[in-house]
Structures are given as C-alpha cells and as structure tokens.
Amino acid sequence: MSQDAIIEIKDLEVVFGSGSAAVRAVNGVSLCVERGQTVALIGESGSGKSVTLRSLLRLHAPKRTSIKGSIRVAGHDVLSLSSSALSDFRGEVCSMIFQEPLLALDPVYSVGDQIIESIQRHKGCSRAEANKKALALFERVKIPSPERRLAAYPHEMSGGMRQRAMIALALACDPQVLLADEPTTALDATVQIQILLLLRELQKTLGLSIVFVTHDIGAAVEVADRIAVMYAGQIVEEGDVRTIMRAPRHPYTKALLQSRAHGSLDRGQRLATIPGAPPDLAKLPPGCAFAPRCAYAQDACREGTIALVSLGESHGARCRRTDVTHLPHTESVEA
C-alpha cells in the first residue's frame, strides 16, 4: 500500500519552545496518504491536527520549533529541503487552503493578480497565458462571471467566493497535494456544503490527494475516504470512513461520536459526555493520554507507550483495550 503513497509521515514530533514550558504539540504521528485519496484529520482544538498539517509545508517558525521524524511528499524529503527548493515545493507539489481566506489573501492586490503572479513565478509563462489559466481556474472552482471576479479585491467578495478564489490560488500551479485547514468552518451552512462538494469534485477530476483538517465530523464524512482521529498530538485511531463511523474501536472516537447532538436523539435526553478536559500538552501523563478520561482505562493504560493495534485492513487504534472496546462500556466491565 505504501508503494503508491504520496504522503508518508513517520514518527513526526513537533515541540514548541523548550525546557519545562515546551509544548509537545505532535507526539509521534505516522500517516500514509495514497495518491488520489482524501484523508480527514479530525480532533478537538489542541489535538495537533493543524500542527501536523502545517508541518507538511514546514510552515512553523524554525527558531521556536523542533521537528523530528520524517515527512516525504511526492518523493521530496520535506524536512531537509533547502529554502529555495521549499518555495518551489510549496505551490507546485503541495499547497494549502486556510480557514479564513481574508487573512490568507493579500488585501491590496486583486484576486486575479495574485493568481497570475503565482502562475508566472512558478511556471515562467507570459502574462497572457497566466491570465488564461487563471480564468480557467475560476471556471473550475465555479465562480460565476469569472472575468469580472478576477479583477475583484478579496474584501469585495462574499465568504464563499473568497474560499473558492483561495482554492483557485492553491491550484494555480497544478499541485498534487492539497492541504485544507478547516476550510469550511467559517462558512455558512448552505455555503459549506457547496465548498465540500467542490473539493470532492476537484479531487476526482484532478486526481488530487487531499489532507483535510476539521473538527466537524460531518464535513469529514462528506469528503474523506479515510479518517484519522487525533488526541493530544497522536493519531489514536485511523481507518476508512465507514469503519470509523460504524465500528470505532478507540474509546475516544466512540465517545466523540456519541457526544454529538444528532437527529436520532430525543429532546431532553442527556448527551453522552467525555468527563474532564484534554491534557496540558506541556505536562502529558505517562501511558495513554486519554486514560484519565477513559471509561475503559485500566492501570496498564497509564504506563509505557501505547502501540497502534491493527484491527483489520487499514484500521488501527492506539489502545490497549481494543479487545473490549467494540462492546458498550457496561458489558465490557463484565467481560
């Protein structure tokens, strides 16, 4: 399976700061993304999902960050790229869209100029050609009356149009990998679904590989082939989207899915909650980081490192209790 992997992350560790205040944002993440696959990284704030994503483009300030492990994207060893190779890599091989396009787009240039400039810089083609390409991109991301919109400034566009324009900018240099950091979180519901469907379509027609970071399980279900659930800087469970949604085996994944308010729930019925709060990344507990909140936890869970347990083809959970976690908690106690 790894022969066709376009992204291979191995034992990634990202630490911000140093000494006793060091924040261990990512603690040994390994992830494989196949060509043409969409993987959703889901988790709550502070789970390390965005940090992992940003590491793929080496976006962290090198001075305050220490990164260990290896990241290979389409044959490039990202962590050892020179700075000029890195700027070619960004955009041409791998590009990124953000939650808030208004912050990611330059306010003093028209959206068209930004896309044209990017195409010219990476491809070295004439302005007329770049212009034609930009127009085609705007059509591809389904921006109505694209000629007129190319001349618009970011603040003149609505939220959904801006997000489309940012996707066009990200696709300007034909990357193979698209990284998406909560791209629909700031959008309205009717717009969010349009963008999710657009990403799905682009993935199919362009053969893109997408890593999609979100805290919204619904958004992940709409676009992803595989889901990786993160907690306290680790991937705690990974599998294809059906397995994760229907037969999660990590207690955190199970609790996360159960704690959502959803349609089949009666009004007034209490939601299942996860007690406590996520751990402080500067003082992680030994053993499983979820153990203090876990209904299935035993003493063994609180020591050593927890290995990923394979639970079938491309399904794994970082848990010592996977033998009972498919049962509801009450039955697992008896077992």
């Binding site: 009717t190 679904i193 999710l196 919204d216 619904g218 279900v221 989207v241 959803h262």
Partner: peptide
Amino acid sequence: SMPSMDPDQRT
C-alpha cells in the same frame, strides 16, 4: 445543507 453523517448517503 447539514453534512450527512452516513458515508453511504453523502450529499
């Protein structure tokens, strides 16, 4: 427009 929670019944 609510995202589907069922992978087999995507929007």
